[in-house]
């Protein structure tokens, strides 16, 4: 019989360090910011799972205690809109139970013409978040990112935070 209690499976995870260091970077180099924060203008414009207790905005609120959860079956996806052209240098995804993650990006004004960017098989972690770091080289230009969770280690997966370190290249009119 499989019965999991909320408390044993979903331990709240506190992860202060990256947020602090990110803030420090922001102060040293004024132009480098976390592009994926809602306070920086980022927005989740599509998510295939909807649970009002764990909405997609939780991924970009800068709070590592809140998350977006899938509500059953895979693949699942969400699209982040930056509302400007950005150049991403480093992308960090903090999640739980994600197995195969594909990331596509678009440089269009509208969320169309996505091209395959990154595909990763994540490591299964027990009791702590998956912390997947992606370094972009010269290929980090985007206006939209589409994250596809193709498979997971459990029946549900969750994403706690998406952060993209980089800079805004231009605003579109």
């Amino acid at each position: 019989m499989y019965r999991y209690s909320f408390s044993s499976r979903f331990v709240p995870i506190y992860w202060f360090v990256p947020t602090r260091s990110r803030r420090r970077v922001k102060h040293l180099k004024m132009r480098k910011v976390d592009l994926c924060l809602s306070t920086e203008g980022a927005e989740v414009i599509l998510a295939t799972s909807s649970d009002e207790k764990h909405p997609p905005e939780n991924m970009i609120d800068g709070n590592l205690e809140t998350f977006w959860t899938t509500t059953g079956m895979f693949p699942q996806e969400f699209i982040v809109c930056f509302h400007k052209h950005v150049r991403i240098e480093r992308l960090v995804i903090q999640s739980y139970f994600v197995r195969t993650l594909r990331i596509e990006k678009s440089t269009s004004k509208e969320p169309v013409d996505f091209e395959q960017w990154i595909e990763r098989d994540l490591v299964h972690t027990e009791g702590q978040l998956q912390n997947e770091e992606i370094m972009a080289h010269d290929d980090g230009h985007a206006t939209y990112l589409r994250f596809i969770i193709a498979s997971a280690f459990d029946h549900f997966a969750s994403v706690y935070s998406i952060s993209a370190e980089g800079m805004a290249v231009s605003h579109y009119s």
């Binding site: 019989m1 499989y2 019965r3 999991y4 209690s5 909320f6 499976r9 979903f10 649970d51 207790k53 764990h54 998350f67 959860t69 509500t71 059953g72 459990d154 029946h155 549900f156 969750s158």
Partner: peptide, 11 residues
């Protein structure tokens, strides 16, 4: 009889 699976909120 039971078929169950887990969701973050509850079972």
């Amino acid at each position: 009889t039971v078929l169950c699976y887990w969701h973050p909120q509850c079972t």
